[in-house]
Amino acid sequence: MGVRLSHDWRFWLLAVALLALLAALLIPRLTLTRHARDLLVVIDVTGSMNVRDYLEGGEPVSRLTTARHAVRRLLADLPCQSRLGLGIFTERRSFLLFEPAEVCENFAAIDGAIDAIDWRMAWEGDSYVVRGVHAALAIAGSLTADLVFLTDGQEAPPLAGGALPPFEGEPGKVAGLLVGVGATEPSPIPKYNEDGREIGFYAEQDVPQENREGPPPEDAPSRAGWNPRNAPWGGEPATGTEHLSAMREDGLRRLAAQTGLGFAPLRDPASLSAAVEANTRAHPVDVLVDIAGIPASLALLALTTLFGLAALIGHRPDRLPA
């Protein structure tokens, strides 16, 4: 004679567990839409990026190191099927190292490439950041990628009259982000000899303090020693603080407004991913997601309840059979 199973909660819990497990095995994978991004990351490798004004673990580290760490974090945070390309900026050009490639499959190589970026890759001392950003936008446009440009915004020589060169592209056509690297307080720029050894810091007269290309500024006649033919910029060497470098937030914000890019200062390496997410375009990609875990959890719950409850109920029945 059988036990009346329909009255036994143990039977029902076991049945639920078995059905849930069968469901876990048979349930199809769900197609979900994730947001992948195509990015071109361009890193400024000019001399001012060697300024050590970040702290990591109590040690001062250079802007370039921090920028590298930030980009490696960004690479790790990008969902699969995103693509990332890499370029460097110096002089007035952005130089493409490789076109965007899928980030998960090629992770180690891209990570190694980011880590190998060095100021020694720079081929000129000049730093026309505005032109570099314009050039990078053209490259990103041709790759249909969004731009992430990491720079401290230090123009060397400084912009003539402080005015931005005109932008020939269409503002906002390429989405992206200008990332301001560096602290807001000025710091001295390390100086290296031709063998790449550090030999001190740039002094005031080591760097051009004023851009003396093009027509002289309107206030030139009031300068000491001014002569319209022999000394159109005044007779004295220009003085200033161009040998000290801080992140030029105002200039970068103006450049961002001119080109339709977003702007975010880089406070620490971890903050880059969120800023990139907010300022670049995501395109949907389909990913298959296994949802077998949901019915399997139910089965686990049923089995745990079954054995747990059975263990809690006293070892002895209330009464002996009659």
């Binding site: 390309g85 460097i88 180690a108 890759m121």
Partner: peptide, 25 residues
């Protein structure tokens, strides 16, 4: 004008081809 490391040795040829694709810039 200066040497530039682009990619470390890798088995993943997709990224190598992405680097080769960049040489006509």
């Amino acid at each position: 004008t200066s040497p530039m490391p682009v990619l470390p040795l890798t088995d993943h040829h997709e990224v190598v081809r992405a680097a080769i694709a960049a040489i006509d810039r």
